[in-house]
């Protein structure tokens, strides 16, 4: 009996020793495998160079570029984002060329330096596609742009719709641009064209942010110039939209001043839900991302590609804002997980 118990106990001890050793080995293996060993490799790497890498539009576009790229066995890197120093767009373009990336997705401009670097990239065998803003007259292989005229018409129709809900006979509308570049010019022209023949008087202003926190100050300055706030304010950038919204809230003019914004940041969506912002137009960044990656792949694989791809804006108003808020929350939860 005693011997039996002793034998059983010994067997238990033996089993515990073995289990202990196995657990120990697994633990050692786990820590040995931890760290830099968890990664995937891809056949191509594309560099994304934004005019303003910190803008929410660029960040959003980069996320979509990265996600879509992964599905195509490409990794899209926002080059320079992990560096301790800040570099200009041209410097980043130069770095991308030196880093021998497979392709470059560039928010273009019409500067000579950019044109020279695009030329250099082309000579180095690196295809460049421009996105949102073009670099005309350069060696870029394709431009993936926004249909700004269509967007301007949409903005105009929204202004007309908002004006019809107001009781005043004379409606003042203000368009606030952020750079006055060709995109915004086309937008503004389309808005004017749409509003022609109506009783709405349209004014436009450009707020250029020459320093980090200047936008908000300039918005306040402009709105202070008005004895009475415009009935409708159209903002053509995300930051302008948020600044104008905050300013209108501070002036206690919500309801009197209708804001039509740009982009689908969380603040803007919440404001639409509450009725403080009438509607917003958002870049279809997924479509943009898809066109960019596909254009580069096609150029590398086939040697040529269509020079121009056009994407539409998405209208978000009180009718469909709930869907976007839910989508936002879902994305946040997904990232959290």
């Amino acid at each position: 009996m005693f011997l039996g118990v002793l034998s059983a106990f010994t067997l238990v001890m033996f089993a515990l020793t073995i289990i202990g050793l196995v657990v120990f080995t697994l633990q050692v293996n786990r820590y040995e495998a931890s760290g830099i060993d968890d990664y995937n490799t891809y056949s191509r790497i594309y560099a994304y160079i934004a005019s303003n890498p910190d803008s929410t539009v660029s960040e959003s576009l980069y996320q979509d570029l990265r996600e879509y790229g992964l599905t195509q066995d490409c990794y899209v890197e926002m080059i320079g984002s992990d560096l301790a120093s800040s570099y200009t767009k041209d410097q980043l373009l130069d770095i991308a060329i030196r880093a021998k990336v497979s392709g470059i997705i560039l928010e273009g401009d019409d500067s000579e330096e950019t044109a020279r670097l695009v030329e250099e990239a082309d000579l180095a065998g690196i295809p460049v596609v421009t996105v949102m803003t073009d670099a005309p007259g350069t060696a870029r292989c394709s431009f993936i742009g926004l249909n700004n005229y269509s967007a301007g018409t949409n903005y105009g129709n929204l202004v007309l719709q908002a004006a019809s809900e107001k009781t005043d006979d004379a409606i003042d509308a203000l368009v606030i641009m952020s750079s006055g570049d060709s995109n915004e010019s086309v937008l503004c022209s389309a808005i004017q064209e749409t509003l022609s023949g109506s009783n709405i008087s349209l004014d436009s202003v450009v707020i250029e942010s020459d320093s980090t926190f200047s936008t908000e100050e300039k918005v306040i300055d402009i709105l202070d110039e008005y004895d009475e706030l415009p009935d409708i304010i159209v903002c053509l950038s995300d930051l302008n939209t948020r600044c104008v919204y905050q300013c209108v809230v501070d002036m206690n003019a919500v309801g009197n001043c209708t804001i039509i914004g740009y982009y689908d940041s969380g603040t803007v969506l919440e404001a639409i839900e509450r009725g403080a912002i009438y509607a917003t137009l958002n870049v279809n960044s997924r479509q943009l991302a898809q066109y960019c990656v596909d254009a580069l792949n096609e150029y590398i694989d086939m040697g040529n590609v269509s020079e121009y791809y056009s994407t539409d804006y998405i209208l978000i108003d009180s009718y469909n804002v709930a869907d976007y808020i839910a989508e936002d929350e879902q994305e946040e939860t997904g990232e959290g997980v």
């Binding site: 830099i36 990664y39 995937n40 490799t41 891809y42 790497i45 490409c74 990794y75």
Partner: peptide, 12 residues
């Protein structure tokens, strides 16, 4: 090309 930030920097 890789999705690991450090390895990507190494490549650059």
């Amino acid at each position: 090309p890789t999705d690991n930030v450090s390895l990507l920097s190494e490549r650059n």
